[in-house]
Design a protein around this nucleic acid. Structure first.
Lengths: 363, 363
DNA sequence: CCGCTTGATGTTTACGTGAACACGTGACCT
DNA sequence: AGGTCACGTGTTCACGTAAACATCAAGCGG
């Protein structure tokens, strides 16, 4: 904190020699324009400035204009910290996630940010990067606190328990990828229903059974998709092949595809996301297994690119924007009613989008 | 000093007798535990609590333990607003962007968030969604303020001028996608060099010239890639075909590809990003134009999926993580030195990744 | 034994804002 | 006309924290 502030700005207090700032160097380097400065220039009290600033009634037009003019001249901007202190809230929602790189989370976060902004809330990202966990620990632990009124967790909540970031007690929480509907308020895509649609679509086309490439076990969404896949097959009395384990990446899908290409009776595969489906398509192409003539492939997510895969991918459409919207809606309700404890699961429906990667078997 | 405490506050708990109801931690405790509460329980002054909270010296071990115990018992968490007010800064960096959905921005934002967290700074997202601009306007204008010490702008800075979000004067700015290196501190991928590498690679393979599918005009990155493409061709004395205009989407790349497939002399295309390259591959596949035998395709970004396209995509690798890292580094330097005015452009190098989508012409 | 230093802890104060209240003025009602 | 009421504006104060200063006890050399 070296006091070498160059005083480059238009100093509001220099107009009058009222405060002998020149004689008292230890005094105040007033970098920021406060309500008091505006009030002084406008010749009113700071309370009137406050009223104008917040658009409150009780200020006559001419006075308001004077204040606004003073604000413009000084470049006044309200101090959020003081406001947050005064009001006891930050108008900010924290979003805890592993990675923005995964398809779903970035789109969900975007929707959250947009809807939150519309409600006057800002979004603070709290990334939990396993690789740099210690750094993050250092940051938020040393800082002491998250300046948020509520938190949206986009990950399996159990993973958060083992993490170094702790949820401050008393903040409201909405969880996206979790089965903790009994303890938390959960908003999520209806994973099970989406997976059911995918598998049933393949069975309806006449495939005897359906193989499955899973997502990582740490993802509850992946677990539920896998469970639903298994359930539909069992229900229909079909054999349940051993699932192939993926990690969301196209690379893992590619590896699974190379294995499946060696299984002659495999005519249909349900990949737990579109990226792995892309890897499957690639692997089958390498192994001269034609999609969909030899093998049908269904993905999950309906990314923007899926229609342009070769062949265009049949997939389950997720409405990430709606998930984000409901997250914000839920979390704001919690904040506003003060009701932290309304668990329950809010499922956003999916939609099967049939494109060119599925066909009856034995084409 | 205290004539009558009106108690008008909506006290959710603690019926009446003072705040020393420490014996009842259950139920809905008072949400705000302040240093004073901790101080009272620990039998010290609030200043001592402050010292412990900040890890300052000058507190004897036994006292420190008492304070820490009191903190734990009450679930104390420091009030960031009060801290920000006291210190005059928020330890927060704002990130202004259009969309998280584009490949680059989400990865850059993630890197920014991670590195900022490591330095004790949080990230606040400020999305500028054109469709809901009025909403965003409502939010941030009515709120009046962004609680940030600095801002990283991931968009052409001119677009911000026309937006409803205004950069508060005095905050430090780092820009990612812009040519405003004379006025702002700019960090960006070396777009021109990356594009040069792509085009030269195709020329080196023996192609007579290279077609180009551009990104949107609003993107300076897209502009620079196009300029470099043109420059390399002109420099080499090759004809410069009319560029096809895309918008980053696979769909626009697909549309361009359908047109290019009808141009027999077109043997090489440089797409301004990987998604459009995917659309090209799809279009050429539909039109039975073999890649790379008939046409070579180069993309830009090196997304995680690019190795699994059919064929695997030759593309220009962008180091988004490094861009994010340098953004944080720059913006923190500005904050710490107080030097807002150090313009200049910081370019992150690219790397050409040759895969299966390029080959000599006339295959 | 005094006075000075050192270190631990308490007290005061200000950060910028806005709710609650006080004040003053003019209009309207009886 | 007197009273009251609405309205514009000013004053006081508290929000939670931490710097600056004050206090107090113990140690220590002269």
């Amino acid at each position: 904190m070296d006091p070498d502030e160059p005083e480059g700005r238009v100093a509001p207090t220099t107009g009058g020699a009222g405060r002998d700032g020149t004689g008292v160097p230890g005094g105040r380097r007033k970098q920021r324009v406060s309500m008091a400065d505006v009030a002084e220039l406008a010749g009113v009290s700071s309370q009137t400035v406050s009223r104008v600033s917040n658009g409150r009634p009780g200020v006559i037009g001419s006075t308001r204009e004077q204040v606004l003019a003073a604000m413009r001249e000084l470049g006044y901007r309200p101090n959020s910290a003081a406001r947050a202190l005064r009001y006891g809230r930050f108008n900010t929602i924290g979003v805890i996630l592993f990675s923005l790189s995964s398809t779903g989370s970035s789109r969900t976060v975007e929707a959250i940010a947009t809807h939150a902004a519309a409600e006057g809330y800002a979004i603070t990202l709290i990334p939990i990067d396993v690789a740099t966990q210690d750094n993050v620990l250092g940051a938020f632990t040393r800082m002491g606190e998250l300046a948020v009124d509520a938190v949206i967790v986009i990950m399996e909540i159990h993973l958060l328990d083992t993490s170094t970031v702790q949820l401050p007690p008393g903040v409201h929480v909405v969880v996206v990828d979790s089965d903790a509907g009994d303890r938390y308020c959960v908003v999520d895509t209806d994973q099970a229903d989406g997976a059911r649609k995918a598998v049933r679509h393949l069975l309806d086309l006449g495939h005897r059974t359906v193989w499955h490439v899973t997502g990582p076990e740490s993802s509850y969404a992946a677990q539920r998709r896998g469970q639903a896949w298994r359930a539909v097959l069992a229900e229909a009395g079909r054999p349940v092949p051993a699932p192939l384990h993926g990690d969301w990446s196209a690379e893992s899908g590619h590896a699974a595809g190379l294995l499946l290409a060696e299984v002659p009776e495999c005519t249909a595969v349900f990949a737990a996301n579109d990226q792995m489906a892309l890897g499957l398509l690639r692997a089958f192409h390498e192994r001269r297994r034609s999609v969909p003539a030899d093998i049908s492939v269904v993905g999950f997510d309906d990314t923007a690119d899926a229609p342009f895969f070769i062949p265009p991918l049949t997939t389950v459409h997720q409405d990430f924007a709606e998930v984000g919207r409901r997250c914000v809606q839920r979390v704001l309700r919690q904040i506003r009613t003060g009701d932290d404890s309304r668990p329950g699961t809010d499922l956003v429906p999916t939609r099967l989008v049939v494109r060119g990667s599925t066909a009856p078997p034995g084409g």
